[in-house]
Simulated scan of single mutants.
Amino acid sequence: MLPIERHRQIMEELNLHGRVLVSELVKLCQVSQETIRRDLSLLERKGLLQRSHGGAVVAQKYQGNLAEKSNSPNEHESTFRLRMNENPQAKTLIAKKALDFITPGDCILLDSSTTCWFLARQLPDIELTVLTNSLHTVQTLATRSHIRTICLGGEYFAHNGDFNGVVAEQPLKDFLINKIFFSCSSLGNDGYLRSANENNAHLKQQMLMASERKYLLIDSVKFLRPSFARICHYREVDFLITDSLKDKELQQELAWNGVNIIDCSQRHNVMQLMNSQDI
């Protein structure tokens, strides 16, 4: 297990239980006690937790979030701040490639994923309409004078800095959206894209239905791993943009289902060129 994956696992356990023990994390992550202690020290320096005898507890500034209602859609999900530090180079690479598919005059939809936040940071100040349910993206685009930014309302969740629910879904029916750029928690071996919570997954379903073209931005660590709530099957995606896709069987399955694969690790993307005249 990579360090970044261990850190995510540690924070997920903390968010779920409020405390973790070194002995439990050793079994969960299959590493030594010294490795776990180093992980906890690093996360403590980042202000994400507090070390305690034999383990760690949630940092003081996050303890209020744990007291929120138990059906919060983000309670089993890592915080936005933690996820934004996961695979930043891959997300930047993916975001820069996604720019190739955005043209002046587009009306685009960005979900509340950290990958789309990386894309928002890369957007040039051109004539665009951007719809999003992410407060982080709204704040990022606030300085772009030529980009019209529309925030989807709804119930606000500080854990992820986004809006969800029926109120967030309603405006999607009123716009002609050319393209959606979105991410997910995982692409499972059953062919389905999944999110960490059901409310977020349902909103993404509505976003996909409202958009003409669908661009999935996904870093390689999310392939073929489990997650909670189903979003859609990958056959509903037009383009998949990733930092690397080495699984030949998955590549073939995606191609058979009409998904154009943009692998940023490859110099030449044959599949990217297949339908370029339609972009």
Rank of each mutant, 00 (worst) to 15 (best):
M1S: 15
L2N: 14
L2Q: 15
P3Q: 05
R8C: 12
E13W: 05
N15Q: 10
L16C: 12
H17M: 02
R19M: 08
L21A: 09
V22P: 08
L25K: 04
L28F: 07
E34C: 03
S41M: 10
S41I: 00
K46D: 10
L48Y: 06
Q63R: 15
G64Y: 12
N71F: 11
S72T: 13
P73E: 05
H76P: 02
H76V: 12
F80L: 03
R81Y: 02
A90D: 13
L93Q: 15
L99K: 08
C107D: 06
S113F: 07
T115M: 01
W117C: 00
F118V: 04
A120L: 06
L128W: 06
L135T: 04
L135P: 01
H136Q: 10
Q139V: 10
R148L: 12
I150P: 09
C151N: 00
L152Q: 05
L152V: 12
H159M: 09
A168R: 04
Q170I: 07
F175L: 11
L176S: 14
N178Y: 00
K179E: 14
S185W: 03
S186M: 03
D190F: 01
Y192I: 01
L193D: 00
N197H: 05
N199A: 10
A201G: 04
M207Y: 06
S211C: 14
K214P: 03
K214H: 06
Y215F: 13
L216Q: 06
I218V: 05
L224W: 00
L224M: 09
P226Y: 09
I231Q: 02
H233V: 02
E236V: 14
V237F: 04
V237Q: 01
F239P: 00
L245K: 04
K248L: 12
C264P: 05
Q266C: 07
H268G: 03
Q272I: 00
M274F: 09
I279D: 01
